[in-house]
Design a protein around this nucleic acid. Structure first.
Lengths: 102, 102
DNA sequence: GACGAGTTTAGCGAATTAGCTAAATACTCA
DNA sequence: TGAGTATTTAGCTAATTCGCTAAACTCGTC
């Protein structure tokens, strides 16, 4: 994965990991995400920019607001890619299935 | 996973991710690991301590040297645990197999 | 017990990061 | 166009991180 470094860097922060969890059900506006945390809007905005740079989320404007959406493929491919590189035997079965599914 | 924060923090550094890859085949002494990188022995030692604190490696003394061994279960469970939390539908099949295997 | 090899600990400096507030930008609606 | 809402950008500070060198520790051997 060419972007794996950015992905792992992005996942190092607990707030960012939780943001991705918040987005798992549906896309949310930056403000809606921020409301779930005790930190300022600019800080949330910065976290979202880092997640976007890692292709872990995408954004689209909807009128006034900017909606963020999880990009599960980046997460799955990055983490699975590294798992496969480090623990090839343990994840062999898993990869076979992923390949079939895609 | 109680330790997931430490695991993700540990994986944020490219040197540490590569150390785990070096360890995938067999356990290695700190010096053998260091020889594969262009950084000083103390820096490698520090990286190994961080990996050990995250339970991603274990160590045992062998005479003069300290051998480090990959702990694949921690890596697999941490990454898969987070994947399952964020992308439950996409990793459903995968988890079923892991459960059967364990 | 002293030496040598292997490794870690201490302590420092430069760079990065995560938080904040204030100000700027983007868009909608009257 | 002017006001209001949503979000980002700029600029700052405090804390963390990663690298280094020097010194200490551990173990086996003489």
């Amino acid at each position: 994965m060419r972007n794996a470094a950015r992905v792992f860097r992005a996942l190092a922060d607990p707030t960012r990991r939780q943001i991705l969890e918040e987005l798992k059900r549906k896309e949310l506006a930056a403000g809606e995400i921020g409301a779930r945390f005790a930190i300022s809007a600019p800080s949330i905005s910065r976290h979202l920019a880092i997640l976007k740079a890692a292709d872990l989320v995408s954004e689209r404007r909807a009128a006034n607001r900017i909606l963020y959406r999880l990009e599960p493929d980046t997460l799955i491919e990055s983490l699975n890619g590294y798992l496969s590189a480090v623990c090839p035997t343990q994840v062999r079965q898993r990869r076979a299935i992923t390949a079939r599914r895609v």
